[in-house]
């Protein structure tokens, strides 16, 4: 089966996020005064062939932990869904 995978990466709590901080600092100039806690991450999408969803999630999580993120400074959410047939 073909699965669609979305990996959303972010910096771990406590890891400085200068991009997020800079975005947050600039918001009041546009009148947005109630926004806090801006964090910048990445989203990666790919398709994965696997026999079932459990295996797909396990493989996607493995590649995320071993390659797509650096666990010292980053964390990630991995989600898997059955790819829509074209």
């Amino acid at each position: 089966m073909l699965f669609s995978v979305v990996v959303e990466t972010r910096l771990r709590p406590g890891i400085a996020d200068p991009q997020g901080a800079t975005i947050e600092r600039s918001l009041p100039t546009l009148g947005f005064t109630g926004i806090r806690g801006v964090r910048v991450g990445k989203a990666m999408r790919f398709e994965l062939e696997a026999p079932d969803e459990t295996t797909a999630l396990a493989q996607a999580t493995d590649v995320t932990q071993r390659f797509l993120i650096n666990p010292v400074i980053e964390a990630a959410d991995v989600s898997v869904s059955v790819a829509e047939s074209v």
Partner: peptide, 10 residues
């Protein structure tokens, strides 16, 4: 060990 993250101060 460890990692190098973005400079404080961007």
């Amino acid at each position: 060990p460890g990692a190098l993250q973005k400079n404080a101060g961007l």
